[in-house]
Simulated assay, not measured.
Amino acid sequence: MSRIKSPLKQSVIRDAISEKIHQSPENNLADRMKVVIEKHFPIENRYRELARLTSVGSGSWRQFQNGKQRPTMQMIEECCQIFPQYTLWIVTGIDDKNLVQQCLDD
């Protein structure tokens, strides 16, 4: 038997998620991507390794990491493919480990 959430309950949940996102110092997608990249790639080979693992050139990764370029859709998609465990957090800022991600079935 499925439970239907009331609009009030959904509003409370939405507000709690919004508050959690805004409390994080990494409060936008680009900042969260940079955190993941900095954690997993040593500075000396960072851009070369990212270029090797993706279809994005090392210069573009460098420009993004240095704040001179916003992440492209390709960068976001490929970063999430390399680090699927961080996809929800990168894209939304939500870090609830109990949420299960799934695709839509046809």
Rank of each mutant, 00 (worst) to 15 (best):
V91Q: 07
S55Y: 02
K5L: 07
R48Q: 13
L50S: 02
S6D: 03
M33F: 05
G67Y: 08
T72N: 07
I37T: 05
N27M: 04
Q10S: 09
W61Q: 02
P7Q: 04
R52S: 15
L53G: 08
E26H: 14
W89A: 00
Y47F: 13
I37V: 15
G57Y: 09
E77A: 10
A16F: 00
T72C: 08
R3N: 13
V100Q: 12
K34I: 09
T72G: 12
Q63P: 03
S60G: 14
S11E: 12
D105F: 09
S58W: 03
V36N: 01
R46K: 15
S18R: 12
A30E: 03
C79T: 15
D95C: 08
P25W: 05
T92A: 04
R46L: 09
K68I: 07
E78M: 03
K97Y: 07
S60F: 11
R3G: 09
R52T: 15
S58N: 06
R62Y: 06
E77W: 03
E78R: 00
E19A: 14
Q85S: 04
I90E: 00
S60L: 13
S55N: 11
Q101I: 06
W61I: 00
L8V: 13
S11F: 08
P71K: 01
M1C: 12
G67C: 05
A16W: 00
Y47W: 07
R62S: 11
V91P: 01
Q63D: 15
N98Y: 13
K34Q: 12
Q101N: 04
L88W: 05
L88V: 10
G93V: 01
F83E: 02
S24I: 09
S24Y: 11
Q101H: 02
N66L: 15
R70V: 12
D105C: 06
N28W: 13
G59W: 05
N66P: 06
N45G: 11
F64R: 00
M75P: 01
I43K: 11
M1S: 15
P71Y: 04
I82P: 01
M75W: 01
Y47C: 08
G59C: 06
S6G: 04
F83S: 01
Q81K: 10
R46E: 08
M73V: 05
N98C: 08
K39H: 11
T54H: 05
R46M: 14
Q81D: 12
S18T: 11
I94L: 13
F64M: 02
E26D: 14
E77V: 05
K20F: 14
D31L: 15
N45D: 15
L8P: 01
V91R: 05
H22V: 02
Q10L: 14
R52Y: 15
R3Q: 13
L8K: 14
A16C: 00
V35K: 12
F83Q: 01
M1V: 14
V12N: 04
E26S: 10
K39I: 09
I37W: 04
H40K: 08
R32N: 03
I43L: 11
I17Y: 08
W89G: 00
K20R: 14
Q85K: 03
P42W: 02
C80M: 02
V100D: 06
Q23P: 03
K9E: 11
D31T: 10
I76G: 06
K97H: 12
I43W: 02
S58H: 08
V91T: 09
